[in-house]
Amino acid sequence: MAEPVIAARDLSLVFTTRDGPVQALSQVNLDIAPGEFISLIGPSGCGKTTLLRVIADLERATGGRIAVNGRTPEQARLARDYGYVFQAPALFPWRTILGNVMLPLEVMGIPRAERAARAKAQLALVNLAGFERKFPWQLSGGMQQRASIARALAFAPKLLLMDEPFGALDEIVRDHLNEQLLKLWAATGKTVVFVTHSIPEAVFLSTRIVVMSPRPGRITDIIDCDLGPDRPLEIRETPAFLRIAQRVREGLRAGHSYDV
């Protein structure tokens, strides 16, 4: 295995709240190799978003070790190693779509002319060519989320962190974006860490699925998802797909995720 992009050892995180300490992550061990598409799946409160935020240095672990590209998460963040896609598009309403995608390049001090060229190329990659001068409110929710993916890719990070990016979209738009994301991943060879609570979405997209469970947030199973690189939407009806989905469902159940 090549040098892992992410290596977590006995990672734990305890939030101090008014009601006392909350164990958000406990004994998390995970290696992610370059080019993998990893889904973190589990019910709310299982720590999947927290784990993603620790990788992104938006939260600090309170125990254990984690390395991102062999560095601390903070060093990785300062080196702009990753692009992050949030649950909501979080586009700035006063900027055009192009202006929004150029924003990270602006922050990183890329020259003006290059900014526009790179942002346009990213927008074309998510099929938003021609919408550069529109404002966010003029786009549908799915298009806005695609713009936010273009924004996360604008500065060409090798690692893409996605926190339930399609959670707020309807089923049809979601299927469509899943297909597009898969193509994007195949075309760019990026490492993707993808948080979701949808089993079909996780199985459809991933090379490996990390099943997590709450109280305390921990990893209960890691499932290989070797459906190959070519995945049309119809693959979801094949026995191989359903078998993996079934294993994920059992993994979730074994973690007592359903006894709410």
Binding site: L58, A88, A90, P104, V107
Partner: peptide, 19 residues
């Protein structure tokens, strides 16, 4: 979320303020 976004780009406080 918007503030986290700026943080993922390691934006300075000045950049967060102006943009």
């Amino acid at each position: 979320m918007a503030l986290d976004l700026m943080r993922t780009w390691s934006a300075s406080r000045g950049q967060v303020f102006w943009t």
